[in-house]
């Protein structure tokens, strides 16, 4: 009984032959990680504004010129500033952003463990 859904899912999955278009994938990935600066809260990938369409072309050209993902990010950061990157860089300005949630998580764990000690 249990195996029916499994078989179903496996057979579905096996039917997906993903295209190996790595370039398109990286292109989309980069565009998704960039803020469309002239739109309100949309990524470059999602936006259809003139700015976003041109920027997508630039990304494509840069990839074809052989630039890596990181190089493209730093190129755009140089041109437009950190505001364009959706993935905030880990630096002095963002220590708290990255570490505070983790600290909260650890503190939560500590509180739970302490509770049990007290109970015992």
């Amino acid at each position: 009984m249990k195996f029916i859904p499994i078989f179903l899912i496996v057979s579905i999955i096996l039917n997906f032959n993903l295209l190996k278009a790595d370039e398109i994938k990286t292109e989309n990935k980069i565009a998704k990680n960039l803020r469309c600066l002239i739109c309100q809260g949309q990524s470059v990938y999602d936006s259809d504004s003139e700015f976003a369409i041109s920027l997508k072309l630039v990304i494509k050209n840069k990839i074809q010129q052989g630039l890596s993902e990181e190089q493209i990010y730093s190129f755009l950061k140089m041109k437009y500033g950190e505001w364009i990157l959706y993935d905030p860089v880990f630096n002095r300005n963002t220590y708290f952003l990255w570490l505070l949630p983790i600290l909260i998580f650890l503190a939560g764990g500590a509180i739970i463990i302490k509770r049990f000690y007290n109970k015992k």
Partner: peptide
């Protein structure tokens, strides 16, 4: 934190950052 951190950072240091899906 992801939502309000940019507001804090901008007020304190005037730096503007974006926090998006990758974060």
């Amino acid at each position: 934190i992801g939502t309000i951190y940019p507001i804090f950072l901008e007020v304190i240091t005037t730096n503007k950052i974006s926090v998006g899906p990758p974060f």
